[in-house]
Design a binder for these strands. Structure first.
Lengths: 239, 239
DNA sequence: CGGTACGTTGACAAGTTTCAAGGCCAGTGG
DNA sequence: CCACTGGCCTTGAAACTTGTCAACGTACCG
């Protein structure tokens, strides 16, 4: 299935609840107005449906509007690794700029809404709007730093540190979006978390139990309450 | 010390031996001519000297012209991880676009020459030359993919696979630059390799010895000959 | 009320790190 | 020229973390 888009629905970034977080956050009002004209709204996706298919040519960038998604990197041998989880306002698909080809499969974790910016419209806009060009480059640089940070984390941190870091990061990002930093409702399975952190699901489960025993978390399946944020933060940050 | 640059020396990218590998590789001759005017040649650096200081503002992108360098990512807690080794023709400093701030220290591994492209000159050029803009964005996308690939590697691969992958990658990159794909003269120490691969130097040493015993390599300190490239490639690629 | 996917827990095995000792090479000064 | 020193590299044995295999418990959905 091709990711359908209601091409000619009016989109208003300025009126969007995500405008403080999303692409327009650092654009001027006139720039945002011009960007709006290039943005299409996609038809909602069901949980498990693909927003981006690995192997497809880069035709558009996507922005999560509601729900959440995971990026799955596929190596030649067939092993998959989840490279990231995406929350509303986050731009996905940037890595495809390397070869105009998507190497990641992006899959909805729950019913999801999204926006779509075709590159054939983005290109001339980057020419016309220096602010938008800088913003795309900034986002690429940010993704690069995040990937490098995660790379270090995979190398240096043990299971407890990785899981603590995951929870702290998720908590922070949810808080940015106006949700509780304490009460997390995970949209991904233990298997997904384990894959993302390069652990086994058993280790994730055991480590969550250990945090629970230590009084740092209250865990009930995918509903997690952070009781000792500073303990988690110390573990994730301090080697 | 500020990284000195002989600002007004004439630079010719078209006459440079690296032009097939470096930034101009995908630019048109007219675009390359304009780019040349923005490029400065830096004063050679001694081994161990910093090309980029972590914490400094982004003022320029750098290109390795001769010798080699390592990028060291610094986390808050003080642990350092080598994020990559850089050969002639490679652009370094891109990750600073995230916050106009360099988070990596880039250090020469041996006497090194480099070029420098100030961002205040690059900005207007990206505006004027769509090809250069696309090329910078492509390079960012490529760095992002490489960082994600390495992230997966740290997670999924064991010591033998990581080291095999490291050697295969280095061999390929040296070959692109007209050097032997078989005879590698490592410019980095075992400690650096271990740090880069998130292993201990003992494990690197042991694994090299294992490859030697298997008849895959001839190892003499930093001089390495690859005897069975396909064995290394199979190990690095096949999970 | 099963059936199935998800999650938890335990015992054991494997791979890597840690700790410790020793070898090799280059540069230095007697 | 030689011995000495310090950095780099190699190798061995023990300890630890995580993966593997297996069993069991739990929520969700027909």
């Amino acid at each position: 299935m091709h990711c359908g888009a209601d091409a000619r629905v009016e989109v208003s970034c300025r009126g969007c609840a995500l405008s403080r977080i999303c692409l327009p956050a650092r654009l001027s009002p006139p720039e945002t107005r011009l960007l709006e004209q290039a943005v299409e709204r996609g038809r909602p996706l069901a949980a498990g449906a693909s927003l981006i298919h690995a192997g497809r040519r880069l035709q558009a960038l996507y922005v999560v509007r509601g729900g959440s998604a995971k990026s799955i990197g596929l190596s030649i041998e067939g092993d998959e690794q989840i490279l990231g989880f995406h929350l509303p306002g986050e731009v996905v698909g940037l890595e495809a700029f390397a070869r105009d080809l998507h190497l990641c499969e992006v899959v909805a974790l729950e019913p999801m809404r999204f926006c779509r910016i075709p590159v054939r419209r983005l290109e001339p806009l980057m020419q016309a709007l220096p602010g938008l060009r800088r913003e795309i480059i900034r986002l690429l640089g940010q993704s690069l730093q995040e990937a490098q940070r995660q790379r270090s984390c995979m190398g240096l941190a043990d299971a407890r540190q990785r899981l603590a870091g995951f929870l702290v990061d998720l908590s922070r990002r949810l808080e940015q979006r106006g949700l509780s930093a304490r009460q997390l409702r995970l949209s991904m399975s233990r298997r997904d978390i384990a894959n993302h952190l390069a652990l086994t699901l058993e280790t994730v489960s055991r480590t969550l139990s250990a945090f629970k025993r230590a009084g740092w978390l209250a865990v009930r399946l995918r509903q997690i309450e952070i009781l000792q944020p500073q303990a988690l933060a110390a573990l994730s940050g301090a080697a």
